[in-house]
Design a protein around this nucleic acid. Structure first.
Lengths: 221, 221
DNA sequence: TACGAAACCCGTATTAATACCTGATTATTA
DNA sequence: TAATAATCAGGTATTAATACGGGTTTCGTA
């Protein structure tokens, strides 16, 4: 197990110090540089103080100037062996996806435990694999579980007539009863009746809940 | 950090011994029992040798008799505080999903590193959270990355405020504006405003279309 | 400090949806 | 053949949602 050299980019001094002191306790980790934004980081790299091809960069997203994710592609172009971990309080999926699309090797929320931070760092540096913190992993998993309700048989699955499915799709697309009636050449009242049946069958409270039920079960897409 | 008591269920003796010797090196972990299938495990529990409400069960899937995942719901019914980790060589998503749906607290592939096995065990036992091994997490993530390439092209991406997400979820559950207002202690008119913003932002025609949009993007589940 | 974004609030008017009810026709199937 | 389900259609009433318009306060940040 080789020595892990780390560079920190984070605009809040206190956060930086906290992470530094946490990592410094580990015998296999050394902090070789700190920067409070992307420009300072570039100076560190370009001045030759640090060899970017053998370090792990831990970076925040929100910082003055360029943000932590957006600077990754440029860094990787210049220093292909640089490894990067995004450490952020932003849990929205779009940041996670964008980080990995930009070439990050890891993404962790700022509320990870110190054990997990260390585990993730070592996982990335020693095994060369990517890492996503458990909180976000479980969030992803839960979303997948939600999606797969369609295929599980523990929840009551209703079966709909052809007409009902047709109308369900149109409701999901946002058409009103009158518009649907015009489309399928029947009366508004008939469509209203079908809509009510759909709501009753799925035990939903209204159309919004009906559509949630339907999409989660793959009845419409 | 309390002592982690572990019961192992695994039909291959050599694998069991390997895991045992690995875990026994840790000061905070104790192996209190072993079984080579579900029946033996039940005997251990029912004989009173082990208190199932304070242990972590690590189980394989494929075993003679009942499989490791299928026995979890019954175990949890009898011993609600039992924590379970599925340790299997099966990486197919359907096993992972089924394990968590059955109430497992963790799922790890048999090729995890010892560090990860320990990390996962401690994460589950000490923090009470679920754990999915990194290899599978990254696999999930990649699938999500693939999906987002496919879906973000044809449909507009919006980002919502915290409040909007909160209200969006409640709409998806079928609550009316008045009910939502009561729940989040604000006025019905405010909720109406938020609902309208959600519809506008997502370029939906009404609440039904809004919910379809939201569910398809995993904004609600 | 000036700005935008978010959250909050309100009025008015119209349209749509929901919740009950009724009954007829057709097709399937037990 | 009798029963059942699906489809269609209508009546009536109430409630909810939508679409405009107007506004304030607060907070983070440029």
């Amino acid at each position: 197990m080789s020595l892990i050299k780390i560079v920190l980019t984070e605009d809040h001094k206190i956060v930086r110090s906290g992470i530094r002191s946490l990592l410094e306790n580990e015998v296999d980790i050394e902090i070789v540089g700190e920067a409070c934004n992307g420009n300072e980081l570039l100076e560190l790299f370009e001045s030759g103080t640090i060899n970017p091809n053998e370090v792990l960069l831990i970076t925040d997203i929100n910082m003055p100037g360029i943000n932590g994710i957006d600077m990754i592609p440029g860094l990787l172009e210049a220093y292909p062996k640089l490894k990067t971990v995004v450490l952020s309080m932003l849990s929205h999926e779009k940041y996670v996806l964008k980080a990995f699309q930009s070439g990050a090797n890891g993404y962790m929320l700022k509320n990870v435990s110190s054990e997990e931070l260390l585990f993730g760092i070592r996982h990335i540096f020693n095994n060369g694999q990517r890492y996503l913190c458990t909180e976000l992993s479980i969030e992803l998993l839960d979303r997948q579980l939600g999606r797969s309700y369609a295929t599980t048989d523990d929840l009551p699955v209703v079966d709909l007539s052809k007409r009902e499915k047709e109308i369900l799709s149109l409701i999901a697309e946002g058409y009103t009863n009158q518009e649907i009636a015009d489309k399928i050449f029947t009366s508004k009242r008939t469509v209203e009746g079908h809509r009510q049946n759909l709501i009753d069958k799925t035990q939903s409270r209204n159309s919004a809940a009906l559509i949630r039920y339907a999409v989660l079960r793959g009845m419409v897409s």
